[in-house]
């Protein structure tokens, strides 16, 4: 990590302001080039600001993951049955609990009846319980409902799908840093660069039929 301090004139009231900008290994070369051209090309300042914002996002994401990890450690002290009750009270289905825990639905059924969990399974349940606890801190009032909803209309990916692939970090990123469509798309890029091909259907959609049940129709 390389850091530079930029001193800029910030207006008559505040005067000079120092801004410390860090470059990670990936963007250090471009950062140095930008600094060299800074005096002659004011537009490069905007690019520099974007790099700084990206670093801040990365730092924020890491802070969230750290807080999440601490929460997991605390919850891991609970028994498997207590964790399972906490999770099911949120309204998640048993099959989704199984999918995220990477076990069969039958295993979850046995846990419900009091069969013991392995340490690894209990840790997985603690991770799921932790995310359910953390989401309300980010203005998500109904965590389970949010987890089951598509991340963007017409894109067949939900936060639950991300959890099932172990991408708790992306779910945290979605919960906290995605105020625009572009930011959600950036998270989807992290998940699967081909998401526009795999999880979007440009030809068909689903509407309610006359009997109230879903019907597949061609998009017009």
């Amino acid at each position: 990590m390389t850091a530079v301090t930029l001193r800029s004139f910030d207006g008559p009231l505040t005067g000079l302001r120092d801004t410390r900008i860090s470059f990670n290994r990936r963007n250090v070369e471009s950062g140095v080039r930008l600094l060299q051209g800074l005096v002659d090309d004011p537009s490069s300042l905007m690019t520099l600001a974007r790099i700084a914002a990206g670093d801040a996002d990365e730092q924020r994401r890491q802070d969230l993951v750290n807080k999440f990890d601490e929460n997991v450690i605390t919850l891991n002290r609970c028994s498997g049955l207590v964790l399972l009750e906490m999770i099911s009270a949120s309204g998640l289905s048993w099959r989704d609990i199984a999918r995220i825990g990477q076990v069969s639905v039958a295993s979850v059924q046995k846990w419900r009846r009091g069969d013991g969990m392995t340490g690894a399974n209990r840790a997985n349940m603690a991770r799921l319980a932790a995310i359910l606890q953390q989401l309300p801190n980010h203005m998500i009032g109904e965590p389970s409902a949010w987890l089951e909803a598509k991340v963007l209309p017409n894109v067949g990916v939900t936060p639950l799908d991300l959890l099932a692939e172990g991408r708790f970090d992306l779910v945290l990123a979605l919960a906290t840093g995605t105020d625009t469509k572009g930011e959600v798309e950036s998270v989807l890029d992290d998940y699967n660069v081909d998401w526009r091909v795999i999880f979007v259907d440009n030809d068909f959609t689903v509407v309610k039929g006359q009997d109230g049940r879903p019907v597949i129709v061609a998009k017009r």
Binding site: W94, R95, G156, D201, F204, V206, P214, V215
Partner: peptide, 24 residues
């Protein structure tokens, strides 16, 4: 050819849920 995601999923997941509820 219809995409499994999201289209077919959107047409099956509600009734899949109903069956799970009946079972539970």
């Amino acid at each position: 050819l219809v995409a499994t995601s999201p289209t077919i999923h959107d047409s099956t997941s509600g009734v899949f849920e109903e069956t799970e509820m009946l079972f539970e």
